[in-house]
Design a protein around this nucleic acid. Sequence first.
DNA 1: ATCAGTTGTAGTCAAAGTGACTTTAACTAA
DNA 2: TTAGTTAAAGTCACTTTGACTACAACTGAT
Lengths: 244, 244
Amino acid sequence: MERQSFASAANVSERLAQPPALAISTVIFALRPSESSGRPTLWLPLVRRIREPFKGLWALPGGPLTRADSLQDAAARNLQDTTGLAPSYLEQLYAFGGLHRSPSQRVVSIVYWAMVQSAEAAMARESENVKWFRADGLDALAFDHRQIVDYALWRLRNKMTYGSIAYHLLGEKFTLAQVREVYEAVLDRTVDPANFRRQLKQTAHIEATDEYLQGGKHRPPRLYRYTGATSEYFPATNPPSPNA
Amino acid sequence: MERQSFASAANVSERLAQPPALAISTVIFALRPSESSGRPTLWLPLVRRIREPFKGLWALPGGPLTRADSLQDAAARNLQDTTGLAPSYLEQLYAFGGLHRSPSQRVVSIVYWAMVQSAEAAMARESENVKWFRADGLDALAFDHRQIVDYALWRLRNKMTYGSIAYHLLGEKFTLAQVREVYEAVLDRTVDPANFRRQLKQTAHIEATDEYLQGGKHRPPRLYRYTGATSEYFPATNPPSPNA
DNA sequence: ATCAGTTGTAGTCAAAGTGACTTTAACTAA
DNA sequence: TTAGTTAAAGTCACTTTGACTACAACTGAT
């Protein structure tokens, strides 16, 4: 057996013997007008890696869990540090712990997914190493982050179909058409306006305001307000809260 | 300031500075006949703690992530080691990472939940330090494990209402009435037999066999077989698999 | 052998929900 | 004023759901 290969084999068992590192990452979704159609579409911010594993590639914002934060606070801090924004929704996505996610040391990543309101997302800071991308059709990312984003997208679509998540991508006041546009952007299909309106009013976590959105070349639509948990984010589930 | 309290304050910041420990725990559900009514109810195995944090109290099977296992394999090993059984379903529940879950060191627990078939659960080994309990009405457990169990129960009920999980608690062949009993045990309400049958046959991941269950004092019911993923467990979701 | 009791299985019916569509109201731009 | 556009409400057929009834098939006791 050659000395070199023996050494690397020893390295493998060595690094697997030491305790895995713990990291927090966050998938951040926001609505932005697509360049082409102008219709709102899903975007997310990524950061460019400046160190060696996958240096130069884009990756999810995150890092090792160093501070004395709860997992959720650490995820919110990711968001704050990279975009300067506060989440309007934040939920744990999954803990990824495969043995070979990172080439050097074993890393277990606890990943959160977040939504920020479109108004705030418009003023998110970008830089050389922080850029926003369309959520669909991403290129290869660092580590397994591409698959993580796909999984987050699937979860987002799932929650959207029977839930009240859509409002967290909008501002405080919105028209029903805007809510419908969110559904259409996320689920990627058209929705009948009339039926959509009817269902929303039943399931209703919204209330009508007295205001109307002026300035269009049509009949001005009424503005609504979300009456569930407002701007604060809250844990994944209604009943027993797994936040600890 | 007294010396004692100064020392303990130093300890607090010290232990929060060192990296958190990583543990895997597993909530294991199985169906067992209740002592009183004889109807099947939900049970789960717990292990008695023999060391000091919460010594003597009951806790979820698990421990630090030491081996070079994937997270899911580590959870399956928990199950194997404490009960001698293999899971028929295994899925990640949540990552709990609160700062004060464990009194001494900070511990981040990645918790899985599993289901084992009732036939096998009947021959699960018990001992002085491993006992089965009814899933509802548990006493105080070690750490935050009581809340974790409650959350797992909620997830189980949720999956049950629109999913094909029930079969994993039964054997290979089963009557429709047995499936209904699973639903009634987990959801804790009665279900109309006729309507239940109708819905199962539509959503159908089952097929009828030619066999009938003899021996009762009634018309013998037909045996069915599950046609989805059989005894092997599979990841949480259909579309993108987060297993890594 | 017959009958009561129990459970499996199929069918009926009304109420509620859903998808496709039509109609009317309210506004802007020419 | 008129054409064009969108908001908002209503209609209608179809499907799904829950409660219930009826019948079939078996066991065990009389």
